[in-house]
């Protein structure tokens, strides 16, 4: 009797252990499935706009080389913004949609729209990001002023 009980106990333990293994294996099956992509960083739209704006300036400069001296520093500002933001966030350099902009007036409108994005991002940002995003918002406003 005693011996049988021991055997039963051991069998039960084995069964329990087997179930445990089966459960872990189940987890492993799910682990192999593609994970949903992580939510993009809240600053990703600010970074995307910085790159899109820089590209828009490049196209306007290419079409109107006489504007190069005036516009090149503004394009450089946007690339500086993108570089600083890329240091903060885990980004996969998503190709921003091209801005359909072919004039200084179009650039100005794009700057004002991008300023709004950065203002909203500044409002929502944690304390350690507020200064950088706020500065980017202010810079976009100064660009709109410079394009008047």
């Amino acid at each position: 009797m005693v011996l049988t009980d021991r055997v039963r106990t051991t069998r039960r333990r084995l069964l329990g252990g087997g179930l445990g293994v089966a459960t872990l294996a189940g987890c492993g099956v799910f682990r192999d499935e593609p994970k949903p992509p992580p939510a993009p960083d809240p600053l990703q739209p600010v970074l995307d706009e910085a790159l899109a704006l820089a590209g828009a300036y490049d196209r306007v400069i290419a079409a109107q080389p006489a504007l190069s001296a005036r516009l090149t520093p503004l394009a450089a500002d946007h690339r500086s913004h993108a570089a600083e933001l890329a240091k903060l966030i885990d980004t996969k350099a998503s190709a921003p949609p091209p801005e359909a902009v072919d004039s200084v007036a179009g650039l100005r409108a794009a700057e004002l729209a991008a300023q709004k994005t950065a203002v909203a991002a500044c409002r929502a940002a944690p304390a350690d990001r507020a200064g950088l995003v706020g500065s980017i918002a202010a810079c976009r406003a100064t660009h709109a002023e410079a394009l008047r």
């Binding site: 520093p73 503004l74 450089a76 500002d77 500086s80 913004h81 600083e84 200064g131 950088l132 706020g134 500065s135 980017i136 202010a138 810079c139 100064t142 660009h143 410079a146």
Partner: peptide, 8 residues
């Protein structure tokens, strides 16, 4: 230039 990349 009349602007800077990071005002403030």
């Amino acid at each position: 230039p009349a602007t800077m990349a990071f005002p403030g």
